[in-house]
């Protein structure tokens, strides 16, 4: 019994240890080193990289912007996702179909979905063409390469992460409670606020964390839709590892990002005991 289990787990243990934990440990070590003359890593050991990340206003601005963009995207996902989840939960027999319709675009290429927004939002894109044709604007509007485009791309990318957890709590909701509320004279809006929303709270918190985490670490969306001015933490990491060639600093930012992700997950874990794995 034991031998088979050992060999079943061995390949994954080796691979995750060798290609996931070991690489993380390496950048953890690099984050306490100094950038060498030719871009390598050298001693002395120092916490300088972390100090720089928190002290230099340029980097605190990027950190703050990442939180702002991720927070805004999460909020909009909630505003769109909650009504959608409620609609799906109430749709009876066609529930499965509606859930599939949420998931289908999600699983098709993230890169292509981001590119689709470039196609729609650029100066000669469909949105500007339509707006000019309708006479709303004479000149094309600068829709692409700004923070709003990044937020839009992130909402589009991660909305399903909001819908699914909220749907699953709403789906298990005891319908009798809503009937009781209405028998006691509550309008649909009051019972939504006082019954449905509080009971759906675990799903709402779960959805918010699941959207916030990938948004905070986003790289592709700010890179393609944001242009140079909307740099987020992910872009800063990439930048340090490529053009700036400061791997120790890039490693420190990576670890700080991981710490933020862990903190977000910890809030989630405290509220619900369900395990993903």
């Amino acid at each position: 019994m034991k031998a088979l289990r050992f060999w079943m787990l061995a390949p994954s243990r080796a691979l995750m240890g060798g290609l996931f934990l070991a690489p993380l440990s390496i950048i953890a070590a690099y984050s306490f080193l100094t950038r060498g003359t030719y871009g390598g890593q050298s001693t002395p050991w120092t916490a300088e990289n972390y100090v720089r990340l928190l002290a230099d206003p340029l980097y605190t601005l990027i950190l703050a912007r990442s939180f702002w963009i991720a927070g805004l995207s999460t909020m909009f996902c909630l505003l769109l996702g909650f009504p959608l989840a409620l609609f799906i939960a109430q749709s009876g027999r066609r529930k499965n179909l509606f859930i599939h319709l949420v998931m289908l675009p999600f699983w098709t290429s993230f890169l292509v979905r981001t590119y689709a927004w470039m196609f729609l939002l650029r100066d000669t894109g469909l949105v500007n063409t339509l707006l000019q044709w309708a006479g709303v604007t004479g000149e094309p509007l600068p829709l692409l390469y700004n923070e709003a485009a990044v937020v839009l791309g992130l909402i589009y990318g991660y909305l399903p992460f909001m819908v699914l957890p909220i749907f699953s709590t709403l789906d298990r909701l005891d319908k009798g409670l809503l009937e009781a509320a209405s028998d006691l004279g509550a309008t649909p809006w009051t019972s939504l606020w006082l019954v449905t929303v509080p009971l759906a709270m675990p799903g709402i918190v779960g959805g918010c964390v699941l959207v916030f985490i990938p948004c905070l670490g986003a790289y592709l969306t700010p890179d393609l839709l944001g242009g140079g001015k909307s740099m987020m933490i992910g872009n800063l990491v990439q930048n340090q590892f490529t053009s700036a060639r400061d791997w120790p600093f890039g490693s420190a930012i990576s670890l700080a990002l991981m710490a933020l992700v862990m903190m977000a997950l910890w809030t989630l874990q405290r509220r619900q005991k369900e395990d993903l794995l």
């Binding site: 290609l19 996931f20 690489p23 950048i27 985490i213 992910g234 791997w247 991981m258 993903l276």
Partner: peptide, 21 residues
Amino acid sequence: GTLYLSLVTPEIVTGVSMLAF
């Protein structure tokens, strides 16, 4: 725990750590 961590780690962090490795 490791598998779970690999699911939530931002792609860019996974990428640069593998590059460094």
